[in-house]
Design a binder for these strands. Structure first.
Lengths: 240, 240
DNA sequence: GCGCTGCCTTGATCCATGTCAAGACGTTCC
DNA sequence: GGAACGTCTTGACATGGATCAAGGCAGCGC
């Protein structure tokens, strides 16, 4: 079932769900055809590593569907998730053959891959893709630095609210403003804790507090209803 | 005096102290001449802003001498330094006309500037510079993510040690291994605190503890002698 | 010298978040 | 159904680092 869906995608970039947001978004027809010609799909089941830190990594990829995390771990096992990768996000680094992070599939993952060498050749000749890549890199850098503000300065409650709003913004939502927003959290409590520089207990407690304060409803632990986003945003009015 | 030194630099990239590490490092003779032709120098006195968040920024630049910080501030005044910029580091973002961070001169600063438009045109035609820029962006991204591990997972003591080792690595040192290493801290206690996600008191206390433990000597608050780097590194053996 | 200023250090106390422990809830497998 | 497992929640307690407060010290102007 999953495979047949992957096969569908192989046949047709035009219907690819991330066609207009991924690395290929800015390519003209010719560049697009070239990308199309060298791409191949890969599935990674939930929980499995896409790549490990220090490992050789000869592909770059876009996420077509699913969620992955970037993380680093200390020798004694403390882990920090340094990025949450959602559909259209880019994996890998042209010009570098070894992986700086652990990349882990959080859900089943479909990747649109390119051999790194071929991709490197291509960007030399495709100014659209090249520019897009530079823009992606700088956007990621801005995001990482914004996350540094979160990790260094915000309280546990503010961190949780920031995370919820991040998920809201990355969700494809019916833009009926003022409607209650419903989101599915892409990460477990444990992964949220690691992403936010907290413990799992603190995450759980703060979620409960937000619920008791009427700012969110928890249909299940992972499915959150936000009756009024603006009321949630008040929690961040001093932060950022 | 400062101005005459700046004037010297204007006349001669060949003797520029960051010639082989900055954005111009990978350029061939022709590209180098083009960069040379459009560059101009700018001095910023210590304490002054180079650019403010949200402000229009029509130049990109390399730091020739001095130290600057990138920072973000919350509405209620909590600040996180997201980057420390030393000589050869790059400022600005091609393809984006507004500044995402506050950039502040920590010491007197000499910048080698390019008008952004001219620079953008140039990188389209200069593959060496273009590649170098992409590499710089990805290196900065790796550094930012490593700093996220520090902010999210490390103890105050580990943070201080990490910072000291960062300064050691960025200092141009006589590589007589096993010699006591001497460093001048580029940041005040306050700036260190903000960079490490701590308070100034905690920074001060941890520095004192490291001194009492014989791992560092403080000739002045800013001048640190590390009798044995390997002994300091033991403090990090569980971290990263 | 002397007072002022900015920066740093130190001490006493507090509190947000971590740690430890127990139990609740949902899912799967038999 | 119910046992077993993973995930999440909640409570009691501990603590690392924040906060509040005082004082030290070097540089500078007069």
């Amino acid at each position: 079932m999953k495979i047949s869906r992957t096969e569908d995608l192989r046949l047709d970039c035009q219907h690819c769900p991330v066609r207009h947001r991924a690395i290929c978004a800015a390519s003209d027809d010719e560049q697009f055809d070239r990308l199309n010609a060298i791409k191949f799909y890969k599935s990674v089941p939930a929980g499995q590593a896409v790549a490990l830190r220090g490992e050789r990594l000869d592909v770059v990829a876009s996420i077509v569907s699913g969620v992955a995390t970037l993380s680093k771990t200390t020798v004694d096992g403390r882990m920090q998730i340094t990025g949450m990768l959602l559909p259209s996000d880019f994996i890998g680094r042209p010009g570098r053959d070894c992986c700086e992070h652990d990349i882990t599939a959080v859900t089943d993952l479909t990747l649109c891959c390119f051999r790194r060498r071929q991709f490197e050749d291509l960007i030399e000749r495709a100014p659209g893709i090249r520019k897009r890549l530079l823009d992606i890199a700088f956007d990621e850098l801005d995001a990482a630095r914004n996350w540094m503000l979160l990790l260094g300065c915000l309280t546990a409650r503010e961190k949780i609210v920031s995370f919820l709003m991040l998920v809201v913004h990355r969700s494809v939502l019916p833009e009926d403003a003022d409607q209650p927003v419903q989101i599915d959290l892409p990460l477990s409590r444990e992964a949220m804790a690691s992403y936010l520089g907290l413990t799992i207990e603190t995450v759980s407690r703060q979620m409960s507090r937000l619920r008791k304060d009427g700012l969110i409803e928890l249909e299940t632990a992972r499915h959150v209803i936000i009756p009024d986003t603006s009321r949630l945003l008040v929690e961040l009015e001093n932060a950022d």
